[in-house]
Each structure stands twice: as C-alpha cells, then as structure tokens.
Nucleic acid binder design. Structure first.
Length: 432
RNA sequence: GCGGCCGUAGCUCAGCCUGGUUAGAGCACCCGGUUGUGGUCCGGGAUGUCGCCGGUUCAAAUCCGGUCGGUCGCCCCA
C-alpha cells in the first residue's frame, strides 16, 4: 500500500471533541468563566508556549512535570521553548512583565486554556488537556484564600459535581516552618529507610514530602506514623491557616483536613487544596491549587503573594457522566447545551430553495436560529433533517406558499401546523 | 519507562477454540410505501484492505511469529 493511503490520526493522548458532546464541553467552560467573572476575576490569555526557563524556575527543576513531562522544542533562533504544562507560571510572568503588580491589588484573573504534558495517556489523563482556573495576586490576607476556594467549590457544584475538598497548609520556607519540618521528616524517613518501597527511598533526597503521595502499601504504613507539617508550622502560618478555615466555615464550605496533602509543583506555600472525587479512580483529582507566595521572586519579579487553582475540564466531565449514570439521572442535567436551531426550512423546488436561504438568513440576523437543506433532498428527507436539527418548527415553502407569500409553519413537537404570512414569521416564532 | 486487555461495516459486537461454499447482526445512513409532511411501522439498498507484514496449509478473519495502533493500570498529575 502506498504511504499516502495510511490514514492520518490524532496524536497519541489527544482528543477530538465532537458533537453532541462538544455542546456540553463548551457549556461547562462558559459556566466556569461566568462563575469566575462574577467574582471579579477578569479573563487573561497568555502564550501557549513559553521560554523553557519559566517552567524550570517556576514549577521546579526536580518536579516530575519538568523532569519528564514537558513538550520542549527549539525554534529557528535556537531558543528553547516549551508548551505550557500548567497555567500559573505564565500568568504570573505576564503580571510581572506588564507591571500589573504596580496597579490596584489584588490582581484577579481567570483563564481557560490548553495544557500539555507528555505522559502515558489513560482514562482522564491526556497529553493535551484543558484547564479552567483563577489566580489572585497581591495579598496574602486569608479572606482571599477562602474566596478562591469557595469560587472553585461552588463552580464544581453548579456544574453538578459533588467533590470532596481536601485542605492543608504546607507552611513557608523558613527554619522554624517547612524547612525545619523537612529536616525532621528526612530524619524520620532515614530511620525507616529499610521499610520504604524502593521508589520512595529515592524521594528522600529529591522531594521528601512527596512520600505522602505514595501508593505503595509498605510506605503508606510507615507514613501513617510520620510527623505531619501542620504540627510544625510557624506561628504566622498556623494563624493564617486558622483564619482561612474560619472564613471557609463562615461561607459554609465543607472541607476535609488532610495534613498529608502535598502538591506536585514546587512553588506552593501555605494553603494547599484539592478537589477530589472517588469515582475517578486513580486520577481522582478534578483539580487543585494553593498559595504561591515565592513564585514571583523566583521569576525575577518583586515579592507578590498569590493563590489560585486549576480544574481539569475532561475530569469534571468524566465525573459528571459517572455520577449521573450511577444516579440514573440524565446526562444533560445542569446544562443547557444543545443545538440552537429553532426553525428549519423545508423548500420544494429551486425558487423555494432561494427563498428559504433568504428567510433563514433574515431570521439568523435577527437572533433566531435557523437552518435549511443544502443537499436538494426530497421533502421527506428534509422533514427528517428538520426533526434531526432539534428545531421547534419546520417552515415549509412550496409553490402554493410562494405564490401567496406565506409559509406553512409546523410545530415539530405537537404536529400542529398553520399557514402564516412570511412577514409574520419572525414575530410568530418569537412568541412561540 | 513498565504491565494487562483489545484490533471484523460509521458505531456496538458475533464468527476465531474444533481452518473450508458469496463474512454476519443490531443501531445509524440512503431510497420507497405516503406524486408536499419528520419522530412509529413495513419493504428495499449501500458500506468491510476481517489493523499490517510474513509463515503453516490444497485452503487462513480463524492456527503461528512479528509489527503497528488503541485502551486500561503503575509512576505522577488536571
């Protein structure tokens, strides 16, 4: 077989989002953006690829994401560029670059963008995936932590999901806080080195706190008695965390304290949280976030505290499907997504086809969804297409109607139909 | 990077174990019954390199080897 006959396929780990599912997909993204904007988070768009150094410095050179998951390439000028593996670093970079931190604070932004990580794909994990998220920069007052978490929680619930919110504080880098705790933890891990799974022994030097994430039975047993960060926070971080919890309680946001929760990216400080749902299997995180008070400085900017989250659209949709099927409810629940065509024109003959195109265009321009046959199908076929389009009405145009300046308007749910003047069509459809 | 499972019509799959006439079903699609009326019903129709390459055999969708692809799990994360 010749090579040009081999079908081209979507790259491994990527997905096409096709109708009808694409309606729900768009609807969910819009719901997110609306929720975020109602809380004062303005939209921001940053480049899909960035200087590789941004992620190495921001996300952390030892992190899993940077060491083995990035799509890095060189451009014609020899620059090393990387498809963004996450959203926060780019947003913070843009804020610093354009000196938004010299304007009114806090800076509150939302994004909805594609992210890229080169991992082995599986259910709920793809090489190109879509995240919606918000970032709030310029204050470390605990009310903003509570606001960010509440906005994420209520969006997920508005979408129809029932996530569990895991909450923790991982302190900041100081001897009397996380730095000191890390030494204590490393000491503990060394004492139990022979009881840990081999992969986890390697983590002692690179990222000891990640040992809490281990799924190895042996390690889990050991970690059950490990010292936890919340017992080793400095006074300021302890107080900050207490206030965040207090504000969340005020707002009625239900959370589960998880002192073993650590996050995969190096820039996190203090508040850390994750929205999980057990039905997602091993990819149980719908999203997560946390505070990143040192990130701006790592990227060469002035100190700028910040907090944000990112939620995976694919995983939310996956969770919604599972939840609804297990509850026996309809998939569409919570969504208005679907075809937007209200009137489908059925035209018999060339002259009628031209008139149908003119009328459909006129309706569209006045804000009413309209469609028509373009394949010269017979009347029966066109009626079938009308039903398939999801339209409420079929507007039939034949010789009789043309001669009289009328259309036959058929209600496709009731089957009732009436002849009305073409000039009355728009008003008639609008009043239902 | 490692392991399991699976590749037959657009989709979901049967057939493969026990090789043998034109490779099937349901759904979807198209046409007709209804010369201008969809969603029901009835009748008809189109659609397959049986993933690919090679081997065994008189004969391979079926047996053997390889290869490619997909998917699920591990690690890690959204």
């Amino acid at each position: 077989m010749s090579a040009d006959r081999v079908p081209v396929r979507a790259p491994k780990g990527t997905n096409d989002i096709l109708p009808p599912g694409s309606f729900r997909w768009q609807e969910l993204v819009r719901l997110a953006q609306d929720s975020f904007e109602r809380a004062g988070y303005a939209p921001v768009e940053t480049p899909t690829f960035e200087d590789t150094a941004l992620f190495e410095r921001g996300v952390g050179e030892t992190s899993e994401v940077v060491t083995k998951q990035m799509y890095t390439f060189e451009d014609l000028g020899g620059r090393s560029l990387t498809l963004r593996p996450e959203g926060t670093a780019g947003v913070v970079r843009a804020v610093i670059e354009h000196s938004l931190d010299r304007g009114p604070l806090p800076i509150k932004l939302n994004y909805a963008s594609w992210m890229f990580r080169q991992e082995r794909p599986q259910k709920g994990r793809y090489r190109q995936f879509f995240q919606v998220g918000i970032e709030a920069m310029g204050t470390d007052h605990p009310t903003i932590d509570a606001e960010v978490i509440q906005v994420g929680d209520s969006f997920l619930r508005a979408a129809g999901a029932t996530p569990t919110l895991l909450l923790n504080s991982i302190g900041h880098l100081a001897d009397d806080c996380r730095t000191g705790y890390n030494r204590t933890l490393v000491g503990f891990l060394r004492d139990h080195e022979d009881e840990l799974a081999p992969e986890d022994v390697k983590r002692i030097d690179t990222n000891p706190m990640r040992t809490f994430d281990s799924k190895e039975e042996k390690t889990i047993v050991v970690m059950a008695s490990a010292p936890v960060i919340t017992d080793h926070l400095c006074d300021a971080c302890t107080e900050h965390f207490a206030q965040v919890k207090g504000y969340l309680d005020d707002l009625g946001v239900i959370y589960t304290l998880e002192p073993r929760l650590v996050r995969g990216l190096d820039y996190y400080t203090r508040t850390a949280f994750e929205f999980v749902w057990s039905g997602l299997g091993s990819q149980n995180a719908m999203g997560g976030g946390g505070r990143y008070d040192g990130l701006a400085e790592m990227l060469g900017g002035n100190p700028l505290p910040g907090i944000g989250f990112a939620l995976g659209v694919d995983r939310i949709l996956l969770a919604l499907n599972e939840e609804h099927s297990s509850r026996g409810t309809r998939e569409q629940e919570g969504f208005q997504g679907g075809p937007k065509v209200e009137v489908y024109f059925v035209a018999i003959g060339d002259e009628a086809a031209g008139e149908a195109l003119r009328l459909a265009t006129r309706l569209r321009l006045s804000g009413i969804g309209a469609d028509l046959d373009h394949a010269r199908r017979g009347m029966k076929g066109q009626m079938k297409d009308a039903a398939r389009s999801g339209a409420k009405y079929a507007a039939i145009l034949g010789d009789e109607e043309l001669a009289a300046g009328q259309v036959t308007l058929r209600d496709l749910t009731t089957g009732e139909q009436e002849r009305i003047s073409i000039t009355d069509l728009e008003a008639r459809v609008r009043t239902g």
